[in-house]
Amino acid sequence: MSHTAHIPSHRKPRRNAPKTALRAGVASGVLSTIAVAGAAGTAQAEPVTQTIEMPTITADLSTAVAASAEATQQVAQDMQTQAQEDAAAATAAKSAKKAKAEAVRKAEAKEKAEAAAKAKAEAEAKAQAAERASRTEARTTPSSTSGSNAATAVSTSSSSSSSSATGSAASIVAFVKAQVGDAYVSGGTGPNSWDCSGLVQAAYSSVGVDLPRVSQAQSTAGTQVSLSNLQPGDILYWGGAGSAYHVGIYVGGGEFVGAQNSSTGVVQRPLSYDPPSGAVRVL
């Protein structure tokens, strides 16, 4: 027997296998839990890594925002440009409308002026026709005592005045006689068509004497003379002195030459054919 046999053993009794397995399982579970926790901890650490990468994400976002702002600004510019173009188009349309209205107004004014001119011409033509009719009536039927007195004076003049002209008077008489047969045209001054005052003016111009153009002024261009004391070359007038409506030239022998009207033209007639109202002597 060993000398230690009597000494109690201090070794711990062996644990049985089930308990050992249990403990091992528990330990393994603990370690597994720690491992899972560690893994979880590692998994939870990843957001920290993403947080570190946020500046890159923020930079991309800033770029996108800047691009969006630029696009918005471009849209605003486009809208402003469109608004300016629309305003310019509206202004142009307004100007065109105004120009059209002005053109229409001018056209209407022109039409009115032409109508007024036509009416005036017609009125003048009627007045001339009335004057011619009045002279014709006076030739056939004296209408007043003054007309009879004028005819008497003319008759006396034709018998007492000289029928021969000399000097400038002869040239004037020759000139007007040369135009007998020419046409009467209102406003005519020759060489083949005349009105009454145009013929008288041209006759005196042929000897270097300037006369007014119209009959009213020609009826006061010289010295008033009596119809009983006429001389060749005297200017005869019909109507009042200063308001005469017709003139002619006394050519002697009790006759005159004048551009009467569009029906007769320039004629030579006796004074009794159309007795004048008065006469003026220029030479």
Rank of each mutant, 00 (worst) to 15 (best):
residue 130 A to G: 12
residue 131 E to F: 11
residue 114 E to I: 08
residue 114 E to C: 05
residue 124 E to C: 06
residue 120 K to W: 01
residue 127 A to R: 11
residue 135 R to L: 15
residue 135 R to P: 02
residue 120 K to V: 02
residue 140 T to W: 08
residue 113 A to G: 09
residue 135 R to C: 07
residue 114 E to K: 12
residue 125 A to Y: 04
residue 123 A to F: 05
residue 121 A to Q: 09
residue 141 T to N: 10
residue 113 A to T: 12
residue 143 S to H: 15
residue 139 R to D: 04
residue 127 A to W: 04
residue 137 E to P: 01
residue 135 R to K: 15
residue 121 A to C: 02
residue 117 A to M: 03
residue 119 A to W: 01
residue 142 P to I: 00
residue 125 A to N: 08
residue 131 E to D: 12
residue 144 S to Y: 05
residue 115 A to I: 06
residue 139 R to P: 00
residue 122 E to N: 08
residue 145 T to K: 14
residue 133 A to V: 04
residue 117 A to K: 05
residue 116 A to M: 09
residue 144 S to N: 05
residue 126 K to M: 03
residue 122 E to W: 01
residue 123 A to R: 10
residue 139 R to Y: 06
residue 121 A to G: 03
residue 134 S to H: 10
residue 142 P to Y: 00
residue 140 T to P: 01
residue 126 K to W: 00
residue 128 Q to E: 08
residue 136 T to K: 10
residue 143 S to V: 15
residue 125 A to E: 10
residue 136 T to Q: 12
residue 117 A to P: 00
residue 131 E to W: 10
residue 145 T to G: 10
residue 139 R to E: 07
residue 131 E to T: 15
residue 143 S to Q: 15
residue 142 P to L: 01
residue 135 R to V: 10
residue 114 E to P: 01
residue 114 E to Q: 13
residue 135 R to M: 15
residue 138 A to W: 00
residue 143 S to F: 12
residue 122 E to D: 14
residue 136 T to I: 12
residue 115 A to K: 09
residue 128 Q to N: 07
residue 130 A to P: 02
residue 133 A to Q: 10
residue 118 K to W: 01
residue 118 K to C: 02
residue 122 E to L: 07
residue 138 A to E: 02
residue 128 Q to R: 13
residue 124 E to K: 13
residue 140 T to K: 14
residue 131 E to N: 14
residue 113 A to I: 08
residue 131 E to R: 14
residue 129 A to D: 10
residue 144 S to W: 05
residue 118 K to I: 02
residue 114 E to N: 12
residue 134 S to G: 09
residue 115 A to L: 09
residue 132 R to D: 07
residue 140 T to S: 14
residue 139 R to Q: 11
residue 120 K to T: 03
residue 130 A to T: 12
residue 116 A to E: 14
residue 135 R to T: 09
residue 121 A to T: 10
residue 123 A to K: 11
residue 115 A to S: 11
residue 144 S to K: 04
residue 130 A to E: 15
residue 124 E to M: 13
residue 125 A to W: 03
residue 137 E to H: 12
residue 121 A to M: 06
residue 130 A to N: 14
residue 123 A to S: 13
residue 118 K to H: 05
residue 145 T to M: 13
residue 117 A to W: 01
residue 125 A to F: 03
residue 117 A to H: 02
residue 123 A to T: 07
residue 119 A to C: 02
residue 114 E to R: 11
residue 134 S to W: 09
residue 141 T to C: 01
residue 133 A to W: 02
residue 117 A to I: 00
residue 131 E to L: 15
residue 115 A to C: 05
residue 145 T to F: 08
residue 128 Q to Y: 04
residue 118 K to R: 07
residue 115 A to F: 03
residue 114 E to V: 11
residue 124 E to G: 03
residue 134 S to D: 10
residue 137 E to F: 07
residue 114 E to A: 14
residue 113 A to D: 11
residue 137 E to T: 13
residue 135 R to F: 12
